[in-house]
Simulated scan of single mutants.
Amino acid sequence: MSFLRRLFRRKKPAPLVCSVKLDDHGNPVGDDPNHVHTGACFVDFEPLALVEVFQSQGCVSCPPAVPGIQKAVTEKPNRLLLTYNVTLFDHLGWKDTLAGPMGDQRQRAYIKKWGRNTLFTPQVVVNGLIDTSGTKGADDIDETIGHARTSLRLPFHVYLDANDTEVRIDSDAPVPHSAQVETGDKTTPGPTPAVPVPIYDILVATYRAGDQTVKIGKGPNKGKKLPHLNAVSSVAKIGQWQGGDLTVALPAPKSSFSRGIEAVVFLQEGAGGPIIAAAKI
C-alpha cells in the first residue's frame, strides 16, 4: 500500500497485500479512502516473539541459568529478549542495582493474571502467555516460545510497525461503535464485530541494548557476575487499540534517544495479559 510506504519509508515492504486502483496506464491512482482491510490483505509470517526475563542479583539460580537463557533466545531470529530486575531477594544482603518497582509490578501482574500465589526467578515469559524458569536448557526455551506462538488464536489479523515518530496498526478487526481510543488521531468506526475485540494497551518499552554485567558484592551470590541483556528502563502506555487502522505518535522521536537506547512497541491486553503483536522501533 503506497500510503504505508510513504509513512514508514521501510527498507522492506509491510506484509500486506492490499489491492490499489490503477489508471489506464497501469499506474497507481492513490489510496482508496473507502478501503477496508480483509484477511486477503495480510500474509503469514513469523511474528516477533517478545521474551521477558525476570531476574535478581540476589537469586542463587540466576547466575548459572541466565547466560543460557540469553543464548537460547538470541541465537534464533524473530525473538527479542527484555530483562527486568526485581527486588524479590533484596532482603538477603545485596540490593539489586537494577531492580525497581517497574519490574516488580510487571512480574506480579502476570502472577495475578494467572491466579498464582508464588514468585520465582529466573522467570521467562513469552508474549505474556506462557512462562518457564529457563533452567532446563535451550530446548525448553524453544518449546515455550513455540507454544506461545501457536496457542494464541485471534479471530482477526493485526500488523504493527513503527518509524522514527509514529506507530502504525493495520487490522481487519472492525472498530465497535462504542470503542474509545486514547489518541488524538481519528479512527473511523466500523460495524460492531460478532465477537467484541478486547481493548489492547499500546505500550513502548525502552531498553539499553546489549549486556550490562554486574559483579555482586554481598549476599549469597557474592563475587559472582550476572549479565543483564537489554535491561528495560521504562514501559509507557501511549494509547489503546480496539480494532481498525490506527496511527499513534511516539512520545519522542527514536532519533532523539541516547546512544545505546532502543525501543519496542507492543499490544497487550491489560496488565499481565497476552501480547498479540510487537515491533522494534
Score class of each variant (00 low, 15 high):
M1R: 08
F3R: 10
R6W: 13
V17I: 11
V17G: 08
V20R: 15
K21E: 03
D24I: 09
H25C: 02
D31P: 00
H35T: 04
H37Q: 08
G39Y: 01
A40W: 01
C59N: 11
P64A: 13
V66L: 15
I69F: 13
E75Y: 06
E75G: 05
R79C: 04
L80T: 01
T83G: 13
V86C: 06
D90S: 10
W94Q: 02
K95F: 02
T97A: 15
T97D: 14
M102F: 04
M102I: 13
Q105E: 12
I111R: 14
K112I: 03
K113D: 05
W114I: 08
G115A: 13
R116V: 00
F120N: 14
V126M: 08
G128S: 12
I130A: 13
D131W: 06
E143A: 07
T144K: 10
T144V: 15
L152N: 14
L152D: 14
H157K: 10
V158C: 06
A162F: 03
V167E: 07
D172Q: 06
A173F: 08
P174Y: 00
A179I: 00
Q180M: 03
V195Q: 10
P196K: 01
P198S: 06
I199M: 07
I202V: 15
L203G: 12
Y207T: 09
A209Y: 13
I216H: 03
P227H: 07
H228L: 12
N230S: 03
N230M: 08
V232Q: 02
S234A: 11
V235L: 15
Q240L: 09
G243Q: 02
G243L: 00
G244D: 00
G244P: 01
A249N: 14
P253E: 02
P253G: 09
S258L: 06
I261N: 00
E262L: 00
F266W: 13
A277Y: 06
